[in-house]
């Protein structure tokens, strides 16, 4: 099981979190599984504003191939620059 937390801006689409019970080997498979769970969510997550953190480690590249294990916690984090 992978637990995915979503930021407030995605709550209307995804809720606060989603449990993905089907086996997934990496983030790419997780995103596909999320799309099956919540149609449209996968496309929403393709927006470049969203980064992913796996067990509190934010991924900055090689995202789709990043391996996942049962029990991992994934967080969707919007990124923005500021002044």
């Amino acid at each position: 099981m992978i637990l995915v937390h979503f930021p407030a801006m995605l709550h209307p689409v995804a809720g606060r979190e989603q449990r993905v019970d089907e086996p997934v080997a990496n983030v790419g498979e997780l995103l596909a599984a999320l799309e099956r769970l919540v149609p449209g969510l996968g496309a929403a997550l393709e927006d470049p504003v969203y980064n992913l953190a796996v067990n509190d480690d934010m991924l900055l590249h090689g995202v789709h191939a990043h391996p996942l294990s049962d029990g991992d916690v994934v967080e969707v984090i919007p990124t923005i620059a500021g002044g």
């Binding site: 801006m9 504003v49 480690d57 919007p78 923005i80 500021g82 002044g83």
Partner: peptide, 23 residues
Amino acid sequence: TSVVKNALSKTGTPFLYKPSRVL
């Protein structure tokens, strides 16, 4: 633009705090 629509116009720049601390 998503970052404007979903972040800048709703919360403003404090959004960046979390990515920076998590990283």
